[in-house]
Design a protein around this nucleic acid. Structure first.
Lengths: 208, 208, 208, 208
DNA sequence: TATGAATGAGAATTCATTCAT
DNA sequence: AATGAATGAATTCTCATTCAT
């Protein structure tokens, strides 16, 4: 609009980019050392600035964790919602959800690790209420999906539903603990094999 | 129950019992709040004494974690060793290991949670070197077991070995995160169903 | 009651005494340097302990100010209430109130100084809501008293009531700024002369 | 108002004007929140600019306080000096001084508040030595004036001189705490009533 | 055995100030 | 003139640990 538009945009964009950079660094450190055990100084060191300087960009250590987690969860649910609205069968839906989950791990590994390790403790604070919401939504999604899968004859009916839910849930996310981008297997490869294990089991069967 | 047989024995036993009590409390708190986020005061509060009083029983916060973890690991490896020395086939060995693992979770849930969440960070300290040892031993045990299973024709050969290892490893231990003694399913029930899932998968097959 | 009673009481009393000691020190420092400009270290130094040690006794710097001010205000209002319930005439009530005020300054000088200098800023915080309450109660008390005095023919009717209120109010309390216990004049002497000034003025009159 | 007559003059004048604007804002904030509790950012926010920008105009936070206070004191003493050199009687001099004081409060209320609340603390710094000078000069002026008033038979001799001094001094200046320009009473109205109170007292006398 | 008062190192956070743009 | 990103010292507060009782 005005001749300053480029400049203003550039400035706003630069600021957002810096924030994102710093958040990525912070997420890395939180994930590898643990949120509580990570000092602001460690994050700042990793970012190459001084501790106090972080407070120009963020209100607090907590708000960094907040932004890291909410960004990741927003993106994850957007992906899940696309899958859920696609009208697939239970089994295909499950496959797609697992694939999206591994892509999420691929793109947000540190955030996923933080979510795994710290969300239980963080959820105590009011500002992290959305973690509980997400958790509940996650549980309903999977419970409904597994129920539907049993009804459609895709999933076994002889196993405890709660157990399956936890099995599937944990099985996917703990991979964030060891996954590294650029490793031998791509996220989609891993998703495929995880699905094979979860669906077909690891034993030799005639069907295999 | 019985009156103290001799003063010295009674005193020594009483002391050991008090230690165990306090350790159980500490483990509970470490597990639920996270080791780094748990203050000595929280532990003391949970035990109904004052912070300083814990130092009559223990050298440091670290030594509590140490004792909690090493006690658990000792017992776990003792159980594993009994299984491994029984000369079973790969598949039966795996089943027995998983069963023992769930029994371990049953008896040492807080310790398992701590092990899961904190061992990576704690292992940095020299006194926790045994955590790395245990980890390595765990990895070789499973890798060898899975390898043997494939060789014996019990386990599928078409999946990435590393992936299966991680899958099985995580799958068992994360259960400590939600397991509660005295729940609807016993530890052995859960072990059985977990094995069914891991071995046979959750999809419907003709074999099922 | 129990044989330990003396001990327990002694301990509880000792603790209360230590708190009071530290609060007196803190009040001194807050009063002389200003609350915001006083660091916890300065208070601790004045008390001969380390900064962190203060937190064994108090939750925060704010809670020290809180306790200092509320203790003082409680005592002041207790004294005022005794006067107000004595059923005196307006003029005698005023004299008694002023006398009690100077006694309050005598016993709680630092608290009064803090009240004077900082209550406006502190009152913003929720925990200091009672400062506003006290302020309002103070204003109603004086306004009613002056009104009654005018009705009884004791006080002049030709002056702005709001102005008199502020005049009397400030006149009494600012004395905390320079008063020192054990000076040439006792609190009661000062009260007497202040009353003479406020009631009769400083100019020479035939009546004087 | 008029177009800038010359560039240099216009620029210099504009700069001076901006400084004055910013100082007025700063004084407002210092007065209402307290000097120590006021951050540079609060001042900048109130001025609609960023914190760092203030340093284009001023060397430091301290220099702002310095300029605010010295400007006010210079003007006050100029007014006082005019009165003192007019050769009036003690009583008339006092009346004129009080009137000038309220006019000062009217024009420099924030500065007066800052002077009241902070000069004791600020005076510690070398650059604020003039605060002490002013204070001493103030005390001699009043002491001499009251002494003269007693000698001239205008003021009562039965009251402690030090007390009267403090009474008059405080009585005038604390008004800055509640005075607002444009209120019901003008500065001169207030001065008149204050004088009536101080000189004649608030009780009903036959002379009144 | 446990208490209670303290220590002291280090945590998160604040803020006056600087400086390149 | 003003911005925005940083600096670095200081501040409040925390907490593992000690120790006399």
């Amino acid at each position: 609009m005005s001749p300053r538009r480029r400049d203003t945009e550039g400035t706003a964009a630069a600021r957002a980019e810096r924030r994102a950079e710093l958040l990525a660094t912070a997420a890395e450190v939180f994930a590898s050392q643990g949120y509580a055990a990570t000092t602001i100084r460690k994050v700042a060191d990793a970012a190459g600035i001084l501790g106090g300087s972080l407070y120009y960009h963020f209100d607090s250590k907590e708000s960094m964790a907040d932004e890291i987690l909410s960004t990741f969860l927003d993106e994850m649910w957007a992906a899940y919602d696309r899958v859920l609205q696609a009208g697939l069968g239970a089994r295909e839906t499950m496959e797609a959800i697992v694939v999206e989950s591994f892509r999420c791990i691929d793109r947000h590994r540190p955030a996923v690790v933080i979510y795994q390790n710290e969300s239980k403790h963080l959820a105590a604070g009011e500002r992290f209420a959305y973690l509980l919401d997400s958790h509940r939504r996650f549980e309903s999604m999977w419970t409904a999906l597994l129920e539907r899968g049993v009804a459609e004859g895709a999933f076994r009916a002889d196993l405890d539903r709660g157990l399956i839910y936890r099995f599937v849930r944990d099985t996917v996310w703990v991979a964030a603990g060891w996954y590294r981008t650029g490793g031998r297997l791509s996220a989609d490869d891993i998703a495929k094999q995880y699905l094979a294990m979860v669906l077909e089991g690891i034993q030799v069967t005639e069907a295999t």
